[in-house]
């Protein structure tokens, strides 16, 4: 190689592929209700546990979930992290709290944001409630819920997290 030639160590090859994304039949039913401002789960016919968001099967039993169950938009912090770096493609400003939340009436957590709180006060067992976007902005998306905020209810004992009925603590 002559010395004038620059050494090539790489080339940029951008790859663009277009997909028509489908949610799945079960998630479709869930998203249709989220568009109406209602959280729903699906109950496993075998173990009776309620999944949210439903993905089509009880992963534990490997059977389809059909029965739809309406859930509260209140829930409990199962665990959380405080994220100090930005998420690619997400405008949210760090540091922010990402929590594993179990809505009342479900037996499994999903991930969502927590806000209107002091990050240092967030803790496992804490009670929270959804803060929804204005109704006119609702779409087929979990982002209809802007975030969850702490509410003035007593903490849930560890052993009861993920086991509360839809009526919450009083139930």
């Amino acid at each position: 190689m002559s010395e004038e030639n620059e050494v090539i160590t790489g080339i940029e090859v951008p790859i663009f592929l277009k997909y028509n994304f489908t949610a799945g039949a079960s998630p479709t039913r869930f998203l249709a209700r989220v568009k109406e401002g209602v959280l729903t789960g699906q109950r496993c016919p075998k173990c009776k546990q309620v999944y949210v968001p439903p993905r089509g099967a009880c992963a534990g039993c490997g059977v389809p979930t059909e029965e739809e169950v309406e859930l509260a938009d209140k829930g409990t912090v199962q665990s959380f992290t405080i994220v100090s770096i930005p998420i690619p493609g997400n405008p949210i400003e760090p540091p922010f709290v990402v929590a594993n939340l179990v809505p009342d009436g479900a037996n499994i957590s999903f991930i969502h944001l927590m806000s209107e709180c002091d990050n240092a006060d967030v803790h496992i067992g804490q009670r929270v409630q959804a803060v929804w976007k204005p109704e006119e902005e609702w779409d087929y998306a979990m982002d209809n819920i802007k975030y969850f905020k702490p509410i003035d209810e007593p903490d849930v004992p560890i052993e009861k997290i993920g086991k509360l009925p839809v009526t919450g603590l009083e139930g």
Binding site: F21, A23, P27, L31, P53, V83, I85, I87, G89, N90, V98, I111, H112, L113, Y140, A141, M142, D143
Partner: peptide
């Protein structure tokens, strides 16, 4: 990022 779900998996 996938449609429909919150994109929070850092």
């Amino acid at each position: 990022p996938q449609p429909f779900s919150t994109h929070l998996n850092a």
